[in-house]
Design a protein around this nucleic acid. Structure first.
Lengths: 190, 190
DNA sequence: GGATCGTGTCTAGCGTTGCTAGTATCTAGC
DNA sequence: GCTAGATACTAGCAACGCTAGACACGATCC
């Protein structure tokens, strides 16, 4: 069965090639510039090949989003564990979150703006996004006091998400991002 | 020049007809179901007529967004002025904001998610969105203490925006919206 | 009153999109 | 070496945003 294995390997490699191409194209030209035709041209296969890997364009976006969740979880984790105090950990996690959204906007959009179909607070939520949220909860737990940690986590995440998206569409004063982060962290720390 | 006036009146009425049709269609089937062809059919004109009113589809979305800003500003205002205390006013404004986003999701998307091109914190920001933001600031001002009101307003708005969008895509626990609102208002009041 | 000129609307079509049916080709196994 | 099945391709469908060119109507001037 070695041939079968090699084929599966090749197929997985090609799938990754598609996801990477979609991601890079979205990052350079935005998601509106990502079409199945252009992706097919980039990976040097015909369109139907892409449809043998993914159900449709939305599925490709979802794959990019999944990759992003893994990276976000890892970066939040290292930001949290690298900090000396609980307060510094929270601040580091929040800053890492905003940096992620700012530096990879296309991936962030795929994760949180585009792919509506991805239940989070449900039983069938995939592992990666749950892990990322768990990192935020871990950073908040020591500072929660009498507040419900999970609710606090949802509010904190919402604030971060709002800061990230509104700032990027020029709806917040560009020069005050640091001040907003400071104020938010102070509110959460209390 | 009465004929000219009547024509302008008819034209304005037709423009409003298009905006209303777009809005209703988006509210019932989502923005992906709104096409120029369907809109033309709904208002019983051919496609080029729509392009004599709007530069393109994005422009129609923008018109719906503008209408939404006016309504949001009005609802935030009445929520704020109806409250007895500053704390109640803030809570009322926050609740009104979330109710707006929940009850008119398509309009909310047009305002904050779709039309990227609409600078907010800039000189040429239209009046309606600025008024809406001013309402939030007015509700926060009495409770700001030593915090910078404008920065606090941006953080509060970001949190509300995050709560609204993440809740709607099932990324927050549906049953805990009240608890999140309580916690957020308490944080802001402090 | 009849010709003229604009304004306003329509039909038709361009290029592109996501997606798929049907065909050809290539490979694995007997 | 031949057959069966997997695999990738060409070609095309319906729908999209948008626009060029033709047509009809109404106001204006001789």
């Amino acid at each position: 069965m070695s041939i079968r294995e090699r084929r599966d390997r090749d197929r997985a490699r090609r799938q990754q090639l598609i996801v990477t191409a979609a991601r890079e194209l979205a990052e350079t030209e935005g998601w509106e510039g990502v079409t199945v035709r252009r992706l097919a041209e980039l990976v040097e296969y015909s369109q139907p090949v892409l449809y043998s890997h993914f159900k449709g364009k939305a599925d490709i976006v979802g794959a990019v989003a999944m990759e992003g969740f893994g990276e976000l979880a890892a970066e939040l984790h290292s930001a949290r564990t690298a900090a000396a105090s609980p307060a510094a950990a929270l601040r580091g996690v929040a800053a890492a979150y905003l940096l992620f959204a700012q530096s990879r906007p296309a991936v962030y959009d795929a994760m949180f703006v585009m792919s509506i179909e991805l239940p989070f607070a449900a039983a069938d939520t995939p592992a990666a996004p749950r892990t990322a949220f768990a990192e935020l909860l871990a950073a908040l737990a020591p500072l929660a006091g009498d507040r419900d940690v999970e609710t606090l986590g949802e509010v904190a995440w919402s604030a971060l998400h709002g800061l990230a998206t509104l700032a990027r569409s020029n709806r917040l004063r560009a020069s005050h991002q640091q001040a907003r982060l400071d104020l938010l962290v102070e509110q959460l720390t209390r």
